[in-house]
């Protein structure tokens, strides 16, 4: 018999991991000579630190300080007139940096370019709002979600979260269910901090059962009147399992294998 391991938190960790698994990567192709992308890379000259083609899109790595000039060249000499998306990726834990990207579209050539640059935590980036009006909202969202400051932005203010929110939710360090501030936000805002005790903490467990709440939960095994107080003198009703069907894992009679043979 193999050694019994508790299964009560199987969702918290990967159930099965393959030691030889390699995450598939999109192939990175070189920029073909004489192609439209080759012209783009030529127009950028030494501003393009690294360039390759991924899924038919040109990806150009640049220096973060040159972002405005690079996008200006792309817009004015290469025909990339639309900025369809601009945001960041949090690589703080891995490299201590944010990766910023600008997704540009050339309508007449039906081509896309992604301009990528990296900034350290606490550094600011120049706004490209004078070139692309769509960058106005995109940069506000980036500021809201990552806390990245954008220089010369006309109206740098949170766009999705409330103005008095604390924290930047898309950072990898921000907990999914929110921090202390987030969990009391609506109570603090509407009723004030002193109402926290009255309202109580959030219930984050969708399967929570309150044993003594006879209004919303029923008993298994015996009936209790609606709303009756059963916090004291409750009849003990231990759950019994059939002894013939289930294996008794606590019994030491069988041999246990600690490792695979």
């Amino acid at each position: 018999m193999r050694k019994y391991t508790p299964k009560d938190n199987v969702q918290g960790k990967a159930y099965y991991t393959d030691r030889f698994w390699v995450a598939p990567r999109v192939p990175r192709l070189d920029v073909e000579a004489e192609s439209h992308f080759a012209d783009v890379v030529k127009a950028l000259g030494r501003k393009a630190k690294e360039s390759y083609v991924e899924i038919g899109q040109l990806v150009v790595h640049i220096k973060a300080t040159e972002n405005f000039n690079v996008l200006k060249i792309l817009k004015e000499s290469c025909g990339y007139t639309q900025c369809s998306e601009q945001s960041a990726v949090d690589y703080l834990a891995k490299d201590g940096e944010f990766e910023l990207f600008y997704q540009l579209l050339n309508i007449s050539e039906a081509k896309r370019v992604r301009v990528v640059c990296r900034i350290k935590e606490g550094e600011a980036i120049e706004s490209v709002q004078p070139l692309f009006k769509s960058a106005n909202f995109a940069e506000r969202e980036m500021f809201d979600m990552f806390g990245i400051k954008v220089n010369n932005h006309p109206f740098l203010k949170r766009i999705l979260m409330p103005d008095d929110w604390e924290g930047h939710p898309l950072l990898k360090t921000y907990p999914m269910i929110g921090d202390e501030f987030a969990s009391w936000y609506e109570v603090d805002k509407i009723f004030g901090k002193e109402y926290r005790d009255v309202i109580g903490p959030e219930n984050r467990d969708p399967a929570r059962i309150d044993r003594y709440d006879t209004k919303r939960f029923s008993r298994v095994g015996y009936e209790v009147p609606f709303g009756a107080d059963i916090s004291e003198g409750e009849i003990e009703n231990p759950i019994e399992y059939s002894e013939t069907v289930l294996v008794d894992y606590t019994k030491n009679s069988s041999k246990q294998l600690d490792e695979r043979r």
């Binding site: 979260m161 939710p169 921000y174 907990p175 999914m176 269910i177 929110g178 921090d179 987030a182 969990s183 609506e186 109570v187 509407i190 009723f191 309202i199 959030e202 219930n203 984050r204």
Partner: peptide, 10 residues
């Protein structure tokens, strides 16, 4: 983080 966990909180 962004959703009220039950409107009966407010």
């Amino acid at each position: 983080y962004a959703t009220v966990q039950g409107v009966d909180r407010i």
